[in-house]
Simulated scan of single mutants.
Amino acid sequence: MRKVVHSPLCRRIITTQTITSEYLVDKTDCDPSKIEFIYGGVFNSRVDFIFDRDKKLYGRDKETIDICFVAHRYSDDFTQKGYDQFVEIARALATDERFRFHVVGDYTPQDIPLGQAEALITFYGAQKSKFFDTFYPNMDIILSPNHPAGAGRGAFDGFPTGSCMEAGFRGVVNFITDPLALNAAFYDGEDIMIINRDVEQTIARIRALVADPGRLYTLARANELAFRRVFDIDRQLKSRTGVIVDELLRDECLVVRPSALMSSLDTAEVVAARMAADHARQTIEQLTSLLNESNRYGEERHDNLFREYEKLSLFYESWSKNNPSQTEINHPRKKSLTLRSAFLSFTSRILRRLLRILSRDLK
């Protein structure tokens, strides 16, 4: 990590949680000016939900107050996601017949004794995203008492969790812990409920809120609006894109990648042999190219000569037909010699001379 953040090729780092920014500065000595903090994740905030149209209200649309727990189970440590605290709260509230409890994720009734709450808890198992379109509008509170201690060294959940964001987009009040103080945008009691691992205190806050359904749903609406404002996907993407564009437009000297280091297996003898082989290959390619060019040249010269000879032959045939009386001529060694013989003798000499020239060119 230290090598990456100090590399000249690493120009900016986008972080989404305060703890990540602090880690980079404290543990890797990263230049703070290199860090761009953009709170929140990129989630689909364009859910098809309108509070006044879709939200199911206690006392108007239903007779129960519904509290849900939604999380993946990564280990047998139930404190990691806070399932143990959820069950404890459910057992304490089970005496109030208004409450119903819902668990989404790979949890079972056998994980922790449910006591009186057993008849009031519904387990749905792991679900796909489409499930929550109809699930969350019926929920009043999502309880997320997660705790990083059991997650392993350096591991932590963001704030809020992805499940809490999806619930908030659909008007569900978030009761959520913030043990690492990651909250950077919300106000306890106004648009979110920040709780801790004190079960009795959490139970008291739940009872106080549901005692006034008007306040419960005012907070639910405020929670939805705050989440849509902070985690709006267009806003999140615009912020990230702006950082990238600024860096692309910034003038920088050309970065030249250094040559690769020679392998320890590449001894001087191996390198010399490799260079000799490359030179031989290049020489063969050059000779092959020259030979192909010579063959092409020879074929063209031969073809041209043959065509010229054909022209002469055709000319003689035509002329002899039109001038039959001129087909014999005097010759110093012979009394008569046909014009055809004279022509053949002449062209033969010309052909031999051209062949000598062609042979010399090919050499």
Rank of each mutant, 00 (worst) to 15 (best):
Y107D: 01
G242W: 08
F86P: 00
N323S: 09
L339G: 13
E190C: 07
V245W: 05
R307P: 00
L93P: 08
D246V: 05
Y124A: 03
V42P: 00
T218P: 00
D303A: 15
D48T: 10
K56A: 03
T18C: 03
K363S: 10
L312W: 05
P324V: 01
F132C: 06
Y217P: 11
G105S: 07
G189Q: 06
I141V: 07
R60K: 15
R221E: 13
I14G: 02
S163Y: 03
D66W: 01
I35L: 11
L216H: 09
A167E: 05
H279T: 05
H331K: 03
S341E: 13
R170G: 09
L265W: 03
A226S: 14
A151I: 05
V256Q: 11
I244K: 03
S163K: 02
E300T: 12
L362F: 14
A268E: 15
R221P: 09
Y83H: 00
T241M: 04
A260P: 05
D52L: 13
A117D: 11
L290M: 12
L143T: 01
L265R: 13
R153K: 14
D232L: 11
E328P: 00
G152S: 08
I192V: 13
K55Y: 01
D246S: 14
E247C: 04
E97I: 06
I141S: 00
Y297G: 02
V103L: 01
Q286Y: 08
L339A: 15
L354R: 15
R352V: 08
T347I: 10
I203N: 12
E269C: 00
N330R: 15
L314Q: 14
P324R: 04
A151L: 15
Q282N: 13
E308D: 12
L120D: 13
R91A: 08
F78T: 00
R257T: 13
Y316A: 11
Q201V: 08
P332C: 02
S33Y: 03
A184H: 14
T177V: 07
A268G: 04
V243C: 03
G125Q: 01
I50R: 12
T64A: 10
S320I: 10
L93C: 02
Y39Q: 07
F306M: 14
D76W: 08
M275F: 07
D111Q: 00
S259K: 12
G40L: 06
F135R: 10
E63T: 14
Q17G: 08
A151E: 06
K128A: 06
P179D: 03
I38V: 10
G115C: 06
S341L: 11
E36I: 13
R257L: 10
A208T: 15
R197W: 10
L287E: 08
V87N: 03
E252V: 14
F156S: 06
T288D: 14
R12S: 15
N44K: 06
L287P: 05
T16L: 11
R281V: 07
I284D: 04
